[in-house]
Computed example of a mutant assay.
Amino acid sequence: MPLTTAALLPAGLFLIALALAAGGARAQETADCSDAVTQVEMTGCAEQDWQNADAELNIAYKAAMAKMQEIDGYLDDNLIGAAETLREAQRAWIPYRDKTCEAYGFLARGGSLESQLVYGCLADLTRQRTGELNDLTGGLGN
């Protein structure tokens, strides 16, 4: 079973994301994200951007995991562990990302900008991690 970030969201952040998604989904249906004006539109677009980044991350994770499994396949039994190491790293990274972004949201705590800040942070850190996973998949030849 693939390890997705949604499956590992802390319960509190998951509930916040779920509540925000209801309003954000409506904004995504009507908002032109190249010209978002209202806070609802900007938040919806920020959420959409994070969802797109998360989808890219999941593709990159699967590719990196396949590379690690390939590496494990040609190593001696006493040297294998690439796939498990990557899995553990991803499991450690997700709470780090989520708590970092939750902290970032405190810059506008209780205000209408809070969720936009959190989604923007989630998208940024997710894209950074996607780059790291793509580098890992590319191996030493990158």
Rank of each mutant, 00 (worst) to 15 (best):
Arg129Ile: 07
Val37Gly: 07
Ile94Leu: 12
Leu122Gln: 05
Leu9Gln: 13
Glu84Trp: 05
Ser34Lys: 09
Asn52Gly: 13
Glu47Trp: 14
Asn78Met: 11
Asp32Ser: 01
Asp35His: 10
Gln69Pro: 13
Gln51Phe: 11
Asp98Trp: 10
Arg26Asp: 07
Glu114Lys: 15
Thr38Leu: 02
Gly73Arg: 05
Glu84Lys: 10
Gly81Ile: 06
Thr5Ala: 13
Glu47Ile: 14
Leu117Asn: 08
Trp93Gln: 14
Gln128Cys: 01
Arg127Pro: 03
Thr5Trp: 14
Gln28Val: 12
Ser34Trp: 08
Cys33Glu: 05
Asn58Ile: 04
Ala63Cys: 04
Arg129Met: 03
Arg109Cys: 11
Gly73Asn: 00
Pro10Trp: 07
Ala64Gly: 01
Thr43Cys: 12
Ala36Lys: 07
Leu113Lys: 09
Ala21Val: 06
Ala83His: 03
Ala19Asp: 12
Ala64Gln: 01
Gly44Asp: 10
Phe14Gln: 14
Arg91Cys: 12
Leu79Asn: 08
Ala21Met: 15
Gly73Ile: 03
Ala92Val: 11
Tyr74Arg: 03
Pro10Ser: 02
Val118Glu: 03
Ala83Gln: 03
Lys67Ala: 07
Ala19Gly: 15
Ala123Thr: 03
Glu114Gln: 15
Glu102Asp: 15
Thr43His: 03
Asn78Gly: 05
Asp98His: 09
Leu9His: 13
Val37Ile: 06
Leu57His: 01
Ala11Lys: 13
Ala92Trp: 03
Asp35Met: 05
Ala46Cys: 10
Tyr61Ser: 00
Ile80Asn: 00
Gln116Gly: 00
Thr4Ser: 08
Leu8Pro: 09
Ser115Cys: 07
Leu9Asn: 13
Leu18Phe: 08
Asp54Thr: 09
Leu107Gly: 04
Ala27Asp: 14
Arg129His: 08
Gln48Trp: 04
Gly131Cys: 00
Leu18Glu: 11
Ala53Glu: 06
Leu113Ser: 05
Gly131Pro: 04
Tyr104Glu: 12
Cys45Asn: 06
Thr38Arg: 07
Ala27Leu: 12
Leu15Cys: 10
Ala83Phe: 02
Tyr96Gly: 08
Asp98Gln: 13
Lys99Phe: 14
Ala53Trp: 02
Leu20Ser: 08
Ala63Arg: 11
Ser34Asp: 06
Glu102Asn: 14
Leu79His: 03
Thr5Val: 11
Asp49Glu: 15
Asp32Ile: 00
Asp76Cys: 02
Val118Gly: 00
Val37His: 12
Thr126Ala: 06
Ala11Ser: 13
Ile94Tyr: 11
Met65Thr: 06
Gly105Gln: 02
Tyr61Gln: 00
Phe14Asp: 15
Leu15Asn: 09
Tyr61Gly: 02
Lys99Leu: 13
Asn78Thr: 01
Ile71Glu: 04
Leu113His: 03
Phe106Tyr: 15
Glu56Ser: 14
Gly81Thr: 02
Ala103Pro: 06
Arg129Ser: 09
Trp50Ser: 10
Ala7Lys: 04
Thr85Gln: 05
Ile59Glu: 10
Glu88Gly: 09
Ile94Val: 14
Glu84Gln: 04
Thr100Glu: 15
Ser115Ile: 02
Asp35Thr: 06
Gly120Arg: 02
Glu84Met: 08
Cys33His: 07
Lys67Asp: 03
Glu70Ser: 09
Gln90Arg: 12
Gln48Pro: 11
Leu117Cys: 04
Ala83Asn: 03
Glu84Tyr: 00
Tyr74Asp: 04
Ile71Gln: 05
Ala63Leu: 05
